[in-house]
Amino acid sequence: MRWAGDRVARRATRLLGGLALYGCSTALLVRAGLGTDPWTVLTQGIARATGLTLGAVVVLVSAGVFLLWLPLRQRPGIGTLANAVLVGPVLDQALRVLPAPHPWPYRLLFLVGGLVGTAVATGLYVGAGWGPGPRDGLMTGLARLGLSVRVARTLVEASVLVVGWLLGGTAGIGTAVYAVGIGPLVGYFLPRLALRSNEPGVPPRDGHTRASRPDATVDSSAP
């Protein structure tokens, strides 16, 4: 029988590793300069309008999204709070060390690396079973009002994309690639990286948050 502390350590490792990878993957998408996921487009737009770093805006946007949870009666978990406070600082640190590639092959490599990394990161932090990210919870909360998760996700992400683009965020071919590719990639990685539901101390899959389903995830994704 495994020690309970070992189970907690494994889940914490997946959660923290997933969030760190999520921040680094977002930095790859930003440095590629080909367009990012909708929430990062919004983050870029707000950062350019306010002079704040991208990471600082991520934290502030997460706090704002939490306020929207209140009327939706969503309850954050440990993973939700960790997502809100950790992804932003990791993103800023990654942007400090990552170069901005100029040749197209390298930019495409950054784009693909960021996309796949985001999917793996989502599988890790959602699969830990300690709650969805702030943006995931917003979409699943809207779904409880009668919308399908897919419709809720489309409405939310389309809205933040338009606002972010109007504020000066970067939308482009990378945004389209992200929109098309993130769902299938998360659908592939999430069941392979999530902790087994029959493992002691891990909640059953049916009792897990709906954000653990591929069509309810970010980002994506984000976070």
Rank of each mutant, 00 (worst) to 15 (best):
Leu54Phe: 09
Ala100Ile: 06
Ala94Gln: 00
Leu60Glu: 10
Asn83Ala: 01
Val58Ala: 12
Val57Lys: 04
Gly77Pro: 13
Ala84Thr: 10
Phe66Glu: 04
Val85Cys: 08
Leu108Gly: 06
Val112Leu: 14
Leu70Ile: 13
Gly77Asp: 12
Ala119Leu: 01
Gln93Phe: 05
Leu60Phe: 12
Asp92Cys: 00
Arg75Cys: 03
Val90His: 14
Leu86Ser: 15
Gly77Tyr: 12
Arg75Phe: 14
Pro76Ser: 08
Pro99Gly: 00
Val90Ser: 10
Ile78Thr: 09
Leu91Cys: 08
Leu60Tyr: 05
Gly129Ser: 01
Ala63Asp: 11
Arg73Val: 00
Leu115Gln: 12
Pro76Cys: 05
Leu86Arg: 12
Leu81Cys: 08
Pro76Lys: 04
Leu67Met: 09
Ala63Trp: 09
Thr118Leu: 14
Gly117Gln: 02
Ala119Pro: 09
Val87Gln: 04
Arg96Gly: 06
Val120Asn: 14
Leu98Thr: 03
Pro101Val: 02
Val126Ile: 14
Ala63Lys: 11
Leu60Arg: 12
Pro101Ser: 11
Arg107Val: 00
Val116Cys: 02
Gly117Thr: 06
Leu124Met: 10
Gly55Gln: 04
Gln93His: 10
Thr118Gln: 10
Val97Gly: 00
Thr118Cys: 11
Leu115Arg: 03
Ala128Val: 07
Ala84Leu: 14
Gly77Lys: 10
Gly123Asn: 15
Leu115Asn: 09
Val97Gln: 05
Val57Met: 10
Ala119Ser: 03
Ala100Cys: 06
Val90Gln: 14
Ser62Phe: 02
Gly117Pro: 01
Gly129Asp: 03
Trp130Phe: 06
Ala121Tyr: 07
Gln74Val: 05
Gly79His: 12
Asn83Gln: 03
Pro103Ala: 14
Pro71Arg: 08
Val59Asp: 08
Gly88Cys: 05
Phe110Ile: 09
Ile78Gln: 06
Thr118Trp: 01
Leu54Met: 08
Gln74Gly: 03
Val97Pro: 01
Leu60Lys: 08
Gly88Gln: 06
Tyr125Pro: 11
Gly117Ser: 01
Ile78Ala: 12
Ala82Cys: 15
Arg107Asn: 08
Ser62Cys: 05
Ala84Asp: 05
Val87Thr: 14
Gly77Arg: 08
Leu98Ser: 06
Thr80Leu: 08
Leu115Glu: 11
Leu60Gln: 09
Ile78Trp: 10
Phe66Gly: 00
Ala84Arg: 09
Val59Gly: 04
Val61Met: 13
Leu72Ile: 02
Gly55Leu: 03
Leu70Arg: 13
Ala100Pro: 02
Arg107Leu: 07
Tyr125Gly: 07
Tyr106Thr: 12
Thr122Ile: 08
Ile78Glu: 04
Val57Cys: 09
Leu124Tyr: 14
Gly79Thr: 11
Thr122Arg: 01
Gly129Trp: 01
Ala84Pro: 06
Leu109Gln: 00
Gln93Val: 04
Val61Asp: 10
Gly113Lys: 12
Phe110Pro: 00
Gly88Tyr: 08
Val61Ile: 14
Gln93Lys: 11
Trp104Met: 03
Val59Trp: 10
Val61Glu: 15
His102Asn: 00
Leu81Arg: 06
Thr53Trp: 04
Arg75Ile: 08
Val65Phe: 08
Leu124Arg: 15
Leu81Glu: 07
Val126Tyr: 15
Ile78Ser: 06
Leu115Pro: 03
Val57Glu: 15
Ala63Pro: 06
